[in-house]
Design a protein around this nucleic acid. Structure first.
Lengths: 203, 203, 203, 203
DNA sequence: TATGAATGAGTGTTCATTCAT
DNA sequence: GATGAATGAACACTCATTCAT
């Protein structure tokens, strides 16, 4: 008998792959190897299941972020760490990214109230980091929300667009491959570097 | 009686707001003020409708992009123009963004074959622009695909996360608003500036 | 522009192959290369089209039957001729058979009133033939309706069950093929022979 | 709450009366007094329902046939028994006949694979019976497939054309009724007699 | 706590038929 | 006469959810 956490793993994969509307309670139950009624009994309806998945993903990511940021002082290192946590393999960055992209696209239609503070906390952590960088004279001042969009958007797109990259690659003229395949973490590092290049205050 | 273009407008809004799975043929027909059977007679089934919407959005965006880029020489101006077209009000950037984000998140599951070249063409335009900038000694060399992710990701997220911003803002402690509201085009300009700061070759 | 007769040809094939409920007005119109509205204008709705098809088939068969029987005196020859007309290639015996089998199976649900006399006339012709045979001392007395069922049933089944024969043959153990393939007219002759063997008065 | 067997009874009647295309899942569900979704849950889609109906009808008939034939030695008795089973009241011969006639007319379009062997087995039983009759010197040699067509065709037509007989009778001039009404089993006996008359070897 | 069975309300799609031109 | 376009009424099938046990 799978644990509730096992069920949430399966559900997260389903919601990431097919979205809230596309995911099927039947399929989740079957994939998790629980009876559908048991799924309802243990976790609740589709909204509750989705909320549980989101809360788990976001709180894990947020906790990791707070813990690691608390131990780092250097402003650039903090930004780099921030990005690395975004794409950390441990909490399925493709699932996290896919769910977040869909949720943003849908205006947070299915976003439960309790994950909003978790999202806000992530932005807040970056905001604080940037502010300290400015105070230390390391960074030019910049809108932290937009910086967040750049990091988050670039990483999330890269984390999830693998299948599309493959299809596009299959279309491209041979000679010059559109993109040499980068691992997600390498891509995230490159993205952060580009961003830091733009933020860095040059004397 | 609405034109097919009117129907596609309505359908685009529905797909952007609710996604492919969430959009309802009934609702689209009713919102477009056509009989459901007429919708099928004129355009076809849900897949065909979705494909028609995507093709129209992407080809409009792509045509605009090629035309405008053809008239601009300066490398930085080209990047700025690229972004501006991404968020151009004329072709509903929130819809374009929302559909694209969902499609990426879903691995292009519903992406019709004929829009792939259109997407590739957009990336190709940016790639060429960056390459010329490098040749002119204006830009440091950078992975054009990742640059694309940064521009596209940041702009698309900003274009669509208005509702979530509002909800988060309602949560935030008064004093310091998380983000002073920027218009989408101002945000896109700021995003481009940050990116160009990072790309620019300083002598 | 196809003639009404051309349209009825196409419609007959459709009704024979798919039945009244299975045949599609769209497909018939397209196959006949007429606009669907033209089909309605020229012939009428589905019931009218079906009635026209049935009437044409049955009256052709009936006319042929009366003409040929009028010229034949010998009782056995008349029965043989009767069967031959049933399976005469000129009026698509598979279509005739398929439509008749379906109609019988459905209790004549879609059978228009004007074809009933045509069917009755066919039975009547056989009845009269058998009665004369009895009067001439050639045949034992027999229920003409049942004789009609035997001839009609056997010929109609054989005329239409080709596809099933093929599938069954594909299943059968090699060695002994279930049925050496007979042409429809040979089969009809054999069937008539068997029947006449049973009817014939032996002194 | 009706059993699955009850549902199949209702469905068999519907398919027999209206054919596969004409039968409506809604009506079957309502007639069987089950919710439509329950019908799908318990049995499956229309194809599955049809397959279940056919399999039940054919396997019942086939089992009965094998059991009874195993206990009878006399060749003529075996043929008579064969026919009696075809029209045995216990398994709704009108339904069996109607479904089979439609299926043959349609080329077995909807015939599930698993009923083909059942049909073949019936023909095989007759074939074997005839062969033994020939070996015993009782029967003239005859094509067993055609004999099958005669028995099956005549009985099936008679089993199902009651409604048409009535309508034709209503048309006929009083005096001479076209056919004195025979019960199905009496008709089947007469049909078998006629056939046996033709098969019987006279010394 | 767990579950096989049941179901109301959709969901995309089709089809015979009509109508304005 | 002819037809492109339009549509009400189905139609097969699905899905989140509940319930009796």
């Amino acid at each position: 008998m799978p644990s509730n956490d096992d069920i949430l793993d399966i559900a997260a994969a389903a919601f990431a792959e097919k979205g809230f509307e596309g995911a099927r309670m039947d399929e989740i139950a079957k994939a998790a190897d629980v009876n559908k009624a048991t799924l309802y009994y243990r976790i609740g309806d589709k909204d509750a299941l989705y909320a549980a998945v989101l809360e788990r993903i976001f709180s894990a990511k947020g906790a990791r972020m707070q813990k690691m940021l608390a131990t780092i002082d250097d402003a650039e290192d903090r930004v780099r760490t921030f990005t690395r946590i975004l794409v950390d393999d441990h909490d399925h960055p493709e699932q996290f990214s896919a769910i977040m992209l869909r949720e943003v696209a849908g205006g947070g239609r299915n976003l439960p109230d309790n994950v909003l503070p978790l999202m806000a906390r992530m932005v807040g952590a970056l905001k604080q980091t940037l502010a300290e960088g400015v105070k230390q004279g390391r960074f030019n001042s910049a809108n932290p929300f937009l910086v967040h969009m750049m990091l988050m958007g670039a990483c999330s797109l890269y984390a999830t667009n693998g299948p599309i990259r493959s299809r596009v690659a299959a279309l491209a003229p041979e000679g010059a491959p559109l993109n040499p395949e980068l691992s997600l973490s390498d891509a995230a590092d490159s993205i952060t570097d580009m961003l830091l290049n733009g933020l860095r205050r040059t004397t």
